[in-house]
Nucleic acid binder design. Structure first.
Ligand SMILES: [Mn+2]
Ligand SMILES: [Mn+2]
Ligand SMILES: [Zn+2]
Ligand SMILES: [Zn+2]
Lengths: 147, 147
DNA sequence: ATGATATTGATAATCAATATCAAGTAGGGG
DNA sequence: CCCCTACTTGATATTGATTATCAATATCAT
């Protein structure tokens, strides 16, 4: 767990943009990478706090934006459309299915989506950055409970 | 443009839930139906104001939630993930493509999505309410401008 | 018409996310 | 290694959208 690869990616991103590599930024990146799941900015803030209580709220928000810029993280919108972040570096595109009752989130892999999306992109002259497919409903467990 | 159908749907929804049919609610529904596009709660508030300046901000928010409950409206999330509302009654499911630069939104119809989604639903024992596919990128016009 | 109950609109409160800004730091050039 | 300057930081205030509160009012089954 040294995250050497990701740190290098982040460093070169920062340099390319004339930004500085600070201890806070690296600590936040490491904390982010240490949890293989969907985190809100505040979740990450709490995580970072445990290691270094001096790091400010705003810095976590700012750094998450940078991580997205460096393609190390991506924003996603799950339950109640709260902004969450997930790992992007070395992770394939995927879709999400969210239980509107308990919030449980399942990651899907529907490869057919990609080509459908590509086709549409061409048809409309769009230059596509990204796409997101979110299914919402009631998970098996909640369906049983409320029956 | 008397919206008779929709008003009846709304009325029976309200009755079924033990809620009351008020002038404000009907006015807000009519204003909502009068614009065939994606509106924020505040967009709708401004629209309603023109007809009846006495109607409060909060009532518009509250009524939009009811319209969603009655399947007359649905929430969507476009640029910057602002909450918008669109007509649902008598409208087929569709997908959206949004330009991250200018906000231009195109409605798509990708019928293949439906069956893909249904398949996944079964596989995971979910009871699906809804799904949303959003493509984001740079539209043809913005692509030309920034070239 | 009556009365229980839902609704309204002004207002305050909340919440996540940003902006501000003085003090501190990184890091390239010398 | 030191300087200088532009970038960063963290505390704090601010924003902007949405929701909660609550006294006054309207609805509707009876
Ligand atoms: Mn995911
Ligand atoms: Mn639409
Ligand atoms: Zn569930
Ligand atoms: Zn555009």
């Amino acid at each position: 767990m040294d995250y050497k690869e990701e740190i290098k990616v982040f460093s070169s991103f920062l340099k390319r943009r004339g930004l500085k590599h600070t201890d806070q930024r690296e600590e936040i990146l490491k904390a982010f990478l240490s949890e293989e799941k969907h985190l809100t900015a505040d979740d990450l803030y709490l995580l970072v706090m445990k290691k270094n209580p001096a790091i400010g709220h705003a810095t976590v928000y700012r750094t998450l934006k940078l991580l997205c810029g460096a393609n190390l993280a991506s924003e996603i919108y799950l339950k109640d459309n709260r902004v969450c972040y997930e790992h992007k570096y070395g992770h394939r595109a995927h879709e999400h299915m969210v239980c509107v009752h308990c919030g449980k989130t399942i990651e899907l892999r529907i490869p057919e989506i990609e080509s459908l999306v590509k086709k549409v992109e061409k048809e409309h002259g769009f230059k596509l950055n990204d796409y997101a497919l979110k299914l919402s409903g009631i998970c098996a467990k909640c369906g049983k409970d409320t029956k």
